[in-house]
C-alpha cells in the first residue's frame, strides 16, 4: 500500500520526467513482484496463502538497517540477513506449517495471520517508533535516455526484477524447480515418485522469505521504513490475487497493475485514495475472474 513510499506531492516536471516516473513505478512494481513471487511459490507448493510476507520483508529491512547502523559493511550485513531469513523460514515451516498440513485452508490462513501479528510484535518491541533510512548503496545519478535518474531508483528496479527473474528461473530450469512444479501439480504423486515434499516446501518458504528480505531491503533503499510499511505485503498479496495465486506470470502482471494503479491515483487524485485503487482493481477482477488473470479456475475451488 502507500507504505510503499511513492514520493508524495507533485512530481517535478523536469526533463525526462516520464522516464523518472517509469523508473519509480518499475521499482515499486519490482518490490511488489518480488514479494508476490514469494507468496505464489509458497502457495503453489503448499496451498497456504502467506499473509505475513510484508511483515517478513520489513523485519528483514529493519535487521539490515540495524546491522548497518552497528557499523557492519553491507557486504556482511546482507548475507547475514539472508541467513537469518533462511533460519526464520525453516522455523516457520517446521514449527508451524509442517504441523498443519492437510488441515482446511482456514487453518493455514490463520496460522500465517498468527505469524504476522507475532512478527509485528517483535518488530514493534525491537524497532518500535523507529524510522529507518538505509544508506544508499549507490549515490549520484544515472543518465538514461536523456533523463537524470537517481542511481538508487535504477538499482532498486533492476535488482528487484532481476531477483524475480532468478526465482522464476529456479522454478523453470533447475531440478529443484522441477520438483516444485511436480509438487504443485500433484503432491501425492510427487511424493510417490520420490520427491521429498518436506524439503521442497521448506525450500519454497526459504526462497519466499529471502525474496521478502530482498524486497524489504530494496524498499528501505528507496523509502523511509517504519513498522507501518508492512502494508507492502498487502499490495503484494493483491498483486498475487489479481494475477492468480498459482501463476508467476500473474504475479508479475499483478504487481505492475497494482503499482501503476497506485501511482495513477497518486498523480491524478489524492494521496489518501491511493490505497484504495489496487483494492478496487482487485475486487473488479475477482468478480469477473475469481481465479485471477492467469490462474487456473480450479484453484478457487481449493481454497
Amino acid at each position: 500500500m502507500l507504505g510503499a513510499g511513492l514520493p508524495a506531492g507533485p512530481v517535478r516536471p523536469a526533463q525526462g520526467a516520464s522516464i523518472q516516473q517509469l523508473t519509480t513505478v518499475l521499482g515499486v512494481a519490482g518490490i511488489y513482484a518480488l514479494l508476490a513471487t514469494g507468496i505464489v511459490l509458497v502457495y503453489r507448493t503448499s496451498r497456504v496463502v502467506n499473509l505475513a510476507q510484508g511483515h517478513l520483508a520489513i523485519l528483514c529491512a529493519f535487521f539490515v538497517a540495524a546491522l548497518l547502523a552497528a557499523g557492519y559493511h553491507w557486504a556482511a550485513a546482507l548475507p547475514a540477513t539472508i541467513a537469518v531469513g533462511c533460519v526464520l523460514a525453516a522455523v516457520i515451516y517446521f514449527a508451524v506449517m509442517r504441523r498443519i498440513v492437510g488441515e482446511p485452508p482456514f487453518v493455514g490462513l490463520m496460522a500465517t495471520v498468527g505469524i504476522a501479528i507475532l512478527l509485528r510484535g517483535v518488530m514493534v518491541v525491537a524497532f518500535g517508533g523507529v524510522t529507518i533510512t538505509t544508506q544508499p548503496l549507490l549515490s549520484g545519478s544515472v543518465s538514461l535516455f536523456g533523463a537524470d535518474l537517481s542511481a538508487t531508483h535504477v538499482l532498486v528496479a533492476v535488482a528487484a526484477w532481476l531477483l524475480v527473474g532468478v526465482i522464476v528461473a529456479i522454478n523453470h530450469f533447475t531440478s529443484i524447480g522441477l520438483f516444485m512444479r511436480a509438487t504443485t501439480d500433484n503432491v501425492i504423486l510427487a511424493a510417490q515418485r520420490g520427491v521429498n515434499i518436506d524439503r521442497i516446501v521448506c525450500l519454497a518458504w526459504v526462497i519466499a522469505v529471502c525474496a521478502a528480505a530482498a524486497g524489504g531491503f530494496l524498499h528501505s533503499q528507496r523509502a523511509l521504513v517504519s513498522t507501518a510499511a508492512i502494508l507492502i505485503g498487502v499490495s503484494a498479496l493483491i498483486a498475487a490475487l489479481i494475477g492468480g495465486m498459482d501463476s508467476f506470470r500473474g504475479a508479475v502482471i499483478g504487481a505492475l497493475a497494482v503499482a501503476v494503479s497506485e501511482y495513477f491515483v497518486l498523480l491524478h487524485f489524492e494521496a489518501r485514495y491511493a490505497d484504495l485503487a489496487p483494492v478496487a482493481l482487485m475486487l473488479v477482477i475477482l468478480t469477473i475472474r475469481p481465479w485471477g488473470l492467469f490462474g487456473t479456475p480450479e484453484e478457487v475451488e481449493r481454497v
Binding site: 498443519i100 487453518v107 498468527g114 512478527l119 510484535g121 514493534v124 518491541v125 525491537a126
Partner: peptide, 17 residues
C-alpha cells in the same frame, strides 16, 4: 503494544497447533 501483539500471535499459533 508490541508485547500484546506477540501474545496474540503466540496464542493464535498455540491454539491452532
Amino acid at each position: 503494544n508490541g508485547i500484546h501483539s506477540i501474545a496474540y500471535g503466540a496464542l493464535i499459533l498455540l491454539f491452532l497447533l
